[in-house]
Design a protein around this nucleic acid. Structure first.
Lengths: 341, 341
DNA sequence: TAAATCAATGCACACGTTTGCTCAAAATTT
DNA sequence: AAATTTTGAGCAAACGTGTGCATTGATTTA
């Protein structure tokens, strides 16, 4: 009992023109007299006619559809990023099909289907899809954009926030405050961003260490996000001679760390321990945490993706883009406590 | 320089069969000899052939695409809900196209495009799209599902959490603790859920009020979410004889309320004021808040949507579904302080 | 005024599937 | 062995649109 779709033929008949003319009325470039166009559009509206994009795509071999794969919306920064991505794409007239990558098996199936929809491009945010899957897309000439994610794929376009600069700023901030016993907190299921930050952090310290001596403890916990930070605090702060300056791979981890430090271990922040995060989530600015952190701007990341998608047609070059970060000073870093005489 | 798509004709040629046969090999129902099917599929795999869903949809007039409109991912509960929706739909072999409804104008355009993609159904989560838009879809026989949202549209399918029960439980909890001066906190840009909870809260109190006397203050603030709660606390707690039992329309509002109450107004929770929220966000269980709240289960909501989408083919009846809620007792409700002798 | 240019529109094929109908061969029944 | 049913597979039309080419009438140029 489905109502028959109203098609271009219908409006053509009513307008007394050919289907071609109707078709051209809905594209900007074609030369159609203003008077005809106006009449046709009017009749189309009246009939409730809508272009069938599926048919159009088939004919033009182009599509407004974009695949957007994210490993669930559990990580708060991922949420903000996806949100920005969606609205940015929408403004460009592109339509994202979302894919959940939490379940690797499901993902494998679904990602294939994405190709079946002839998506214009596929953007993979930090998460777990195996690189072999991305390769499949490249085989079919569907451009792949890796966002804040490892770049195993040679042919993919890469967009990353400046983890190196961020890690450097974090190191600098802790050292400037006088800390010498530092630690890096992360989940052992960490994403590319996490290990990248750790490596650059370590690297920066190695440079500084020549001046004074600075120790670095690398802590990985078999949890993710908030829970990882929580567990990490329990573990490390119970030790006799624990570190005093903590760089958490993400703000979310920092929240867990702070909560456990305060409520379970009775530590004061920043009096007893200093903490710095990465992301600058909205929650970080709230009085509960007031977290000093490295800000990466989702807007700029989204903008870069947009430019990348548009640019892909024109250039065959793979794009490599680094998005700047900055230090946001709040209230979780202070001088280390006066400990041993 | 686009690589030519490999089509069913290509695999047909190589397999020495007709296109029809290839087509039927990828559908379950048709009668094709096992040996042919196996050979065809093998060749298809080898060629990297993928069904072109656009073409298929055009032929079958069916689509795996589903429109999912949400007013941005700012509200934390919305995020969880959307997340569950995406993974649930994915499991069903459906592909959600996400639409951001924050910007009403953009939305109007984008939602039209959704129809152009011949979506199987469109689900609108709590948010702002005008009801007239929904009506457009119904005109085109695209089923509309309203999720936690007002049901102005007669022909739409409705799925809501049990706001009535929730409000009742909240009222009961506060009254049982001994509170008589109650308040309801909400954003003045509130969604349907918010006003619904308020109305049921008031209604429940009216019943109780016959027994003892209970006052209700309704507070609306010109902010949203966390900020609304924050401002509300500043405003109401500065008054001489303020309420002691607060029902916040959402957990997120409750967080703002608690933060302001504690850090700006110097109140202790639950010693000075009691708070109850709605949603049961993960954050509510953390020690920072440990918020007593009404839990609504995103899983069940998503499941209901799934069933609804599936059921729509078979029955022409509009679906009305209420999803149960429950009270989660934590640490933000206690007896009111001993105030006036 | 004849020739050349141009603007507006129609024709018909292409895009990649699905599916009702047809048909031949094989299998089964009488 | 003849008649019937079943099985496997091909033909061709349909889905709704875009677009190169052809056509026609109007306008400009020589």
């Amino acid at each position: 009992m489905k109502k028959q779709n109203v098609t271009s033929a219908d409006v053509a008949r009513l307008a007394g023109v050919s289907r071609s003319t109707v078709s051209r009325c809905f594209k900007s470039d074609s030369r159609i007299s203003d008077v005809t166009r106006k009449r046709v559009i009017e009749i189309a509206d009246q009939l409730g006619y809508q272009v069938n994009k599926l048919a159009r795509s088939m004919s033009t071999k182009e599509s407004d559809l974009v695949g957007l794969v994210s490993s669930g919306l559990h990580d708060p920064f991922a949420v903000i990023l996806v949100d920005k991505l969606i609205s940015t794409l929408q403004k460009m007239g592109l339509h994202p099909i979302l894919l959940d990558a939490s379940n690797e098996k499901q993902l494998d199936i679904s990602i294939k289907k994405l190709a079946q929809y002839q998506v214009k491009s596929i953007v993979i945010t930090s998460g777990s899809p195996s690189s072999s899957i991305g390769a499949k897309f490249i085989n079919r000439d569907i451009p792949v954009i890796l966002l804040n994610r490892a770049g195993q794929l040679d042919q993919a376009n890469l967009i990353n926030c400046d983890n190196q600069k961020g890690a450097m700023l974090a190191a600098q901030a802790l050292i400037d405050a006088g800390h010498t016993k530092l630690a890096f907190i992360n989940s052992s299921f960490s994403t590319f961003s996490g290990v990248s930050r750790r490596d650059f952090f370590e690297q920066t310290l190695a440079l500084k260490a020549s001046a004074g001596d600075v120790t670095l403890e690398k802590i990985n916990v078999e949890e993710t996000g908030y829970q990882a930070g929580y567990k990490a605090a329990l573990k490390t702060l119970s030790q006799q001679d624990h570190a005093t300056g903590f760089f958490c791979a993400t703000d979310n981890i920092a929240f867990g760390f702070m909560d456990a430090a305060r409520y379970e271990m009775g530590k004061k922040i920043p009096d007893d321990v200093s903490v710095i995060g990465f992301d600058d989530l909205p929650l970080s600015a709230r009085p509960t945490y007031d977290l000093t952190t490295i800000k990466q701007c989702p807007n700029n990341l989204a903008k870069a993706v947009a430019e990348c998608i548009n640019g892909i047609d024109t250039t065959s070059e793979r794009i490599r883009k680094i998005i700047p970060v900055s230090l946001i000073k709040r209230k979780t870093i202070a001088a280390p406590p006066y400990q041993q005489l």
